[in-house]
Design a protein around this nucleic acid. Structure first.
Lengths: 230, 230
DNA sequence: AGACTGCTGACAGAAACTGGCAGCATGCCG
DNA sequence: CGGCATGCTGCCAGTTTCTGTCAGCAGTCT
């Protein structure tokens, strides 16, 4: 196994652990001596991996992904840049910031002339119509990721106020509306909630009892919304 | 200079040339022997770079970019995936295909569990309203990239048919409308053309006399559309 | 205090990389 | 056709880099 493969392998092993791992254990799993493991960790850190080590504790990897070197065609880069610009314009503040960071990160490793080419890229995203969310969408994303229940105060179509506990599992981006897809405990059915009508939201400590992946399966069949396949 | 740095360097040197380059010259520029250069080329090809070599001619790099290994946070990946999905749903067929390819490429280098996570990603893009373009948008993008004039048959707001020659420099994505931004020779002014009203388009052999980067500068000031910065 | 862990330096052996050489195949030009 | 420029591969010795072992210091937890 070549060195670069081993480093990628090490990243994957690190990612599997949620608790701190000792260097000794990592060395065993990657089949390498402890001294070399320390050198490998240093290499990964130098390449931008967020690995934190504390004496007496072990190593922890801040969540994220290390992409190996890869080749993109001109159109693929255009698509990535346009997509990121759309997110940067239309996403909620945190997601928009993440999109801008990703763009900056990609830009920073490109040679100067390419970077300029992207800055002057000719695929533009128009401004968003005014009228934003009342709540913080990143809270919704967090609940979805961690499969936690969510307590909502919601204004329905006729302006009626209701309180519900829901199991959120997806966030849909339509033209001007963002929709939270969730199982509603009150109605005992799948429901969509326009995020601009969610007056308040709080994440509960309860996790919902079904796996998140299992939820959208029933729901998708009747809604014909699916992710563009990877 | 380490080997991996040298390989990246070699990519940049290759990209600078539009004509075929001999291995001898590449070896000189990267400060390495000819034998090693052949080995380096082989390494890059193995890593997915599209380098073509012909005996008696030299090497040519198909346009594209090699990204070095890099780290993305969880939210940055979510933003990239959501953005690519949006392009895959809303872009014209070629751009959509490029977005799907880019997603597949990223997916193929991720470990299985991560790939699954992305497939089940919970940020979805809704379907597009029916009613598409009559023409091929990739032709417009091609004209913009190569700074060539474009001959249009266009139906204006009142349904009047007109023929124009324009200097296209940007493509704007609004909610349900895509707009070509260009200098119109007929009106001697900047004009926007909704792509769904372009009845025919043909790229001319003429290049337009000003540099593309110079055009949007005047235009942006009055339209407040700008790319989310890289 | 003791056990566990991260981290660094030194050094010898192992592995990989590199350059030079030879040889063959392919395409261009006269 | 022959000559030339070029891509490509195998071989081998010299050089560089990587790796493992050993030692030592510092920080955290019980």
């Amino acid at each position: 196994m070549s060195r670069s493969e081993r480093l990628l392998d090490l990243m994957q092993v690190l990612r599997r652990y949620r608790q701190p791992v000792s260097g000794r254990r990592l060395a065993e799993e990657t089949g390498v001596s402890l001294r070399t493991l320390y050198r490998d960790i240093a290499s990964l850190q130098a390449r931008g991996a967020h690995i934190e080590g504390e004496p007496g504790i072990g190593y922890v990897l801040r969540p994220g992904f290390m992409l190996p070197p890869m080749m993109f065609s001109e159109e693929e880069i255009e698509a990535l840049v346009l997509g990121s610009r759309w997110v940067a314009k239309r996403g909620d503040p945190r997601l928009a910031a993440a999109a801008a960071d990703a763009l900056a990160k990609i830009g920073s490793v490109l040679p100067a002339d390419l970077k300029e080419k992207l800055e002057h890229s000719t695929l533009l995203v128009g401004p968003r119509k005014p009228g934003g969310e009342t709540i913080d969408l990143s809270l919704l994303r967090k609940s979805i990721r961690s499969e936690h229940k969510l307590a909502l105060r919601y204004l329905d179509n006729d302006g009626r106020d209701s309180r519900r506990t829901v199991w959120p599992f997806a966030l849909g981006f339509f033209e001007e509306v963002r929709v939270l897809a969730a199982w509603c405990e009150l109605r005992q059915d799948f429901r969509h909630f326009r995020t601009d009508r969610i007056a308040e939201a709080a994440m509960l400590d309860d996790r919902y009892p079904r796996r998140r992946q299992a939820l959208p399966k029933d729901w998708r069949a009747v809604n014909s919304i699916d992710p563009a396949g990877i």
